[in-house]
Amino acid sequence: MLKIQNLHVSIEDNEILKGLDLEVKPGEVHAIMGPNGSGKSTLAQVLAGRDEYEVTEGSIDFQGEDLLEMDPEIRACEGIFLAFQYPVEIPGVSNTYFLKAALNAVRKHRGENELDAVDFLRLVRERMKMVEMDETLLNRPVNEGFSGGEKKRNEIFHMSVLEPKLAVLDETDSGLDIDALRIVANGVNSLRAEDRGFLVITHYQRLLDYIVPDFVHVLVDGRIVRSGGKELAHELEDKGYGWLEAELASEATSAAPVGA
C-alpha cells in the first residue's frame, strides 16, 4: 500500500533524508528505529504532507497514487493518519467538534453519509473506552491542559475514530509511563487489521514489546541501513545505535578507495 523509493528530503537546504526506500503492505507493522537526528520524524511529517519539507528526489506511492501530489487533508481522507510526536493544543476548539468535523470530512471524501449526532456519540464513546480515556476530555479544547499521556492517548483515540489505512506513529511512546504505554499499545493492537498498515517510529525498543512489529528498520543519517525482523530491535537495545554506526563507518572506510 505504501512504496517509498529513493526519497530525498531537505529543509532549508539541509538534506535530512538521503535516499530512503521502504515498502509497507496491508496488515504489516513496520518499526522504524534510529538515533536522534536520523530523519525519523522528517519521514513522518513528509508522509502527512507538511510543506516545510522539500522533496528533492524520489517518490511515494500510496495505494497506486502519487502521495506527494496530495494536500495533507486529501492524504488523511485517503487513509493516512499521523499520530503526532507533539500533539498541538488548540484552544477554543473542543475535542468533539474537531473530531466530528474531521470524521465528516473523511466520510464525505469516501462517499459515505455524514454521521448524525447520536451515531457519532455512540462511536466516540465506544472508542474512548478502548484507550481508557476520560469522557470529560471530549468537551475540553483539543489537547489544551492535557497531560503528556492524555495527549498521546487522544491521538490514538482520533486514529480509532478515523480508521485509517496507514497509521504513522511518531514516537508515540516517548514520555509515557509504563501504564500509559500499555494503554496506547493496547489501542494500537486492537486496530491491527488485515487491510491496515502501521509505521511505528520509535527511539526505544520498549514500545515494540507491546506492539510487536513484523519488520524493523534502522534509520541512520537519512537512509535505512538495516532491516530485519523483531529480533533486530532487541539487538539494538543490547548493543545501542553506536554499534551500527561504527560498523557503517568501517564499511564506508573500506569502500572509500573504490570510489576514490
Binding site: 502527512a48 487533508e73 488523511a76 474537531f98 468535523a101 474531521a102 471524501h109 478515523l162
Partner: peptide, 24 residues
C-alpha cells in the same frame, strides 16, 4: 502548526482556518 494538525486529520485548509478563527 494548528492548521497543519487539523489538515492532517482530513479538514481542508480553509475549513481548518475557519475553525481556528471561530475558536479565537
Amino acid at each position: 502548526d494548528a492548521v497543519f494538525y487539523l489538515r492532517s486529520r482530513g479538514i481542508g485548509e480553509e475549513a481548518a482556518k475557519s475553525l481556528l478563527i471561530y475558536a479565537f
